[in-house]
């Protein structure tokens, strides 16, 4: 085991020489890794930021229930109770039509013009209904509509739902795409290593003659693959470190609207960089492992 570690500098040296000798091949494999990791990086940035957004959307899902004008004040408690008894409902909050009017005035830019209408307030008394998560929106809404005295019930529109579904699709599709790209990078690295193994078959034969064991013969190739992977991860990491910080500063921490709050760069960039570095090394090792296992078969 000690011998194994003592030999690392030796293998490292060999791997460097080999990368240098097959510079064009090594470069193209490293580029493949770079492209893959660049996309992984973009995907990470989007996925991580979207997941915080979708958390927010999920939390803010609310149903807006308007009560018919003819319903008497006494019946309100009963309606509130029926809403509360529906599954997945957490909080029910009452808001009378005066409050609704205030909100309307505050919301509209030309609010002051509405003031004239305050006397004949056409709005309805309402309940805000919070529920546990977005996926129950439709079911709860349907049940609320069944309750007697409910004039209308609505939620942030199907758009909220569509948004969530879109996020999910992006996450799945992006993930799949990244996995495919990883396989491509692994394939390219394993091809590079195959060529290295081929160009060094004389050396391998001589190694066998002087009594090198298989681990010793395989090591430099594994190391070479890993190094190609690591070299490939440099560019995406640099782009991430500087690009994300820049984007964060320029956008003031938000994507387009305050709903899309960006992850702060300090822990995120570090974790993402380590992920990219690890992934680069892994892709490189798997790639070289495949070739080494296939082409450095033990024979006597």
């Amino acid at each position: 085991m000690i011998k194994f570690f003592k030999l690392i500098p030796y293998h490292f040296n060999n791997a460097c020489k080999s990368i240098y000798r097959n510079l064009a091949m090594s470069f193209s494999s490293a580029t493949a890794v770079s492209v893959t990791l660049l996309l992984v990086m973009l995907f990470l940035v989007i996925a991580v930021n979207l997941s915080s957004v979708s958390d927010k959307i999920e939390k803010s899902v609310q149903i807006f229930v308007q009560i018919d004008n003819i319903v008497s004040e006494e019946e309100y408690d009963a309606i509130e109770e029926s809403i509360k008894s529906i599954e997945n409902v957490t909080v029910v909050e009452y808001s009378n039509k005066e409050e609704q009017f205030d909100l309307l005035v505050a919301d509209e830019q030309a609010g002051s013009e509405y003031e004239l209408l305050r006397e004949e307030n056409p709005l309805l008394n309402a309940f805000y209904v919070d529920i546990t998560s977005g996926e129950h929106l439709e079911a709860v809404n349907a049940e609320v509509l069944e309750i007697e005295g409910v004039y209308n019930s609505d939620y942030g529109g199907t758009s909220a739902n569509y948004l969530m579904e879109a996020f999910e699709t992006i996450r799945l599709g992006g993930g799949l795409f990244v996995v495919i790209l990883c396989f491509l990078a692994i394939f390219l690295i394993s091809n590079t290593i195959k060529i290295t193994i081929h160009s060094r078959s004389d050396e391998i034969a001589i190694m066998r003659h002087v009594g090198a064991d298989n681990t010793f013969i395989k090591m430099p190739f594994m190391m070479e693959g890993m190094m190609i992977g690591l070299i490939g991860s440099i560019a995406p990491i640099l782009i991430l470190v500087f690009g994300y910080q820049y984007l964060y500063n320029v956008l003031g921490g938000n994507f387009f609207s305050s709903l899309l709050e960006m992850q702060s760069p300090t822990p995120f960039v570090l974790y993402a960089s380590l992920t990219l570095l690890g992934l680069g090394a892994l892709v490189g090792m798997v790639g070289s492992f495949l070739s080494v296992n296939k082409y450095v078969k033990w024979k006597r």
């Binding site: 066998r208 002087v210 009594g211 090198a212 064991d213 298989n214 033990w298 006597r300």
Partner: peptide, 10 residues
């Protein structure tokens, strides 16, 4: 054994 051949060759 195949895996022992390298050590023998020494």
């Amino acid at each position: 054994k195949h895996s022992k051949v390298p050590y023998y060759r020494r």
